[in-house]
Simulated assay, not measured.
Amino acid sequence: MSLVIQEHARARLITDGPDPRPVPVELRYDPEQPQTVHVRLPGGADWAFGLDLLERGLRSPATRDDVRIWPCGRAQLVVELHSPDGVAVLQFDNAPLIRFLSRTGAKAAKRRPAAAPTATATATRA
Results as ranks from 00 to 15, higher is better:
Val37Trp: 04
Arg103Glu: 12
Asp65Thr: 05
Gly50Lys: 11
Pro61Ser: 09
Pro42Phe: 13
Pro61Gln: 08
Gly44Glu: 10
Val37Met: 07
Leu90Pro: 00
Ser83Asp: 14
Gly50Ser: 11
Ala106Gln: 13
Gly44Ser: 10
Val79Gln: 01
Gly57Pro: 01
Ser83Gly: 14
Asp85Cys: 06
Gly57His: 01
Asp85His: 12
Asp65Trp: 04
Ala45Phe: 10
Phe49Ala: 03
Gln76Glu: 15
Ala62Pro: 04
Ile69Asn: 03
Phe100Thr: 11
Gly105Lys: 10
Ala75Lys: 08
Ser83Ile: 06
Gly86His: 00
Ala48Gln: 08
Gly57Ser: 02
Val78Ala: 11
Gly105Phe: 14
Arg68Asn: 03
Ala109Phe: 13
Val39Ser: 03
Val37Arg: 01
Asp52Leu: 08
Val87Ile: 15
Arg64Gln: 14
Thr63Gln: 15
Trp47Lys: 09
Gly57Asn: 00
Ala62Phe: 09
Phe92His: 02
Arg56Ile: 13
Asn94Trp: 12
Gln91Ile: 04
Arg103Pro: 06
Gly105Ser: 14
Phe49Thr: 05
Val89Arg: 01
Asp46Cys: 15
Trp47Phe: 15
Trp70Ser: 05
Trp70Asn: 05
Asp66Phe: 09
Trp70Cys: 10
Phe100Ser: 04
His82Ile: 05
Leu41Cys: 08
Arg40Lys: 15
Val67Leu: 06
Thr104Gln: 06
Val39Cys: 08
Phe49His: 04
Ala106Met: 14
Gly86Tyr: 02
Pro42Gly: 05
Val39Ile: 14
Asp93Met: 07
Ala106Cys: 10
Ile98Tyr: 03
Ser102Val: 08
Ser102Pro: 00
Gln76Asn: 14
Asp66Gly: 13
Val78Tyr: 00
Arg99Ser: 15
Ile98Lys: 08
Gly50Asp: 07
Thr36Glu: 04
Arg40Tyr: 01
Gly44Asn: 14
Ala108Val: 12
Leu41Thr: 04
Pro84Gly: 07
Asp85Arg: 08
Val39Phe: 11
Asp46Gly: 06
Arg56Ser: 13
Ala109Ile: 05
Pro42Asp: 11
Ala62Gln: 08
Leu41Glu: 07
Leu41Asp: 04
Ala108Arg: 15
His82Pro: 00
Leu41Ile: 09
Gly50Asn: 06
Val39Arg: 02
Phe100Gln: 08
Ser60Tyr: 10
Cys72Asn: 01
Thr104Trp: 07
Gly44Thr: 07
Leu77Phe: 10
Arg59Trp: 13
Pro61Asp: 10
Ala45Glu: 15
Pro61Ile: 12
Asn94Phe: 04
Pro96Lys: 02
Arg68Gly: 01
Val39Pro: 05
Ala88Asp: 05
Ile98Arg: 15
Ala48Trp: 05
Leu54Thr: 12
Arg56Asn: 08
Ile69Phe: 06
Asn94Met: 11
Leu53His: 01
Ala75Ile: 00
Gln91Leu: 11
Ala95Asp: 15
Pro42Ile: 00
Ala45Gly: 06
Leu97His: 04
Leu54Asn: 08
Arg64Cys: 12
Val87Cys: 09
Cys72His: 05
Ala48Leu: 08
Phe49Val: 07
Asp85Pro: 02
Pro42Trp: 06
Gly73Met: 10
Glu55Ser: 09
Arg56Cys: 09
Ile69Trp: 01
Ala109Val: 07
Ile98Leu: 14
Glu80His: 02
Leu53Gln: 02
Ala75His: 10
Phe92Ala: 02
Val79Lys: 00
Ala75Leu: 05
Leu90His: 00
Leu58Arg: 08
Thr36Lys: 05
Ala106Phe: 09
Asp66Met: 14
Gly43Thr: 09
Gly43Ile: 06
Ser102Cys: 07
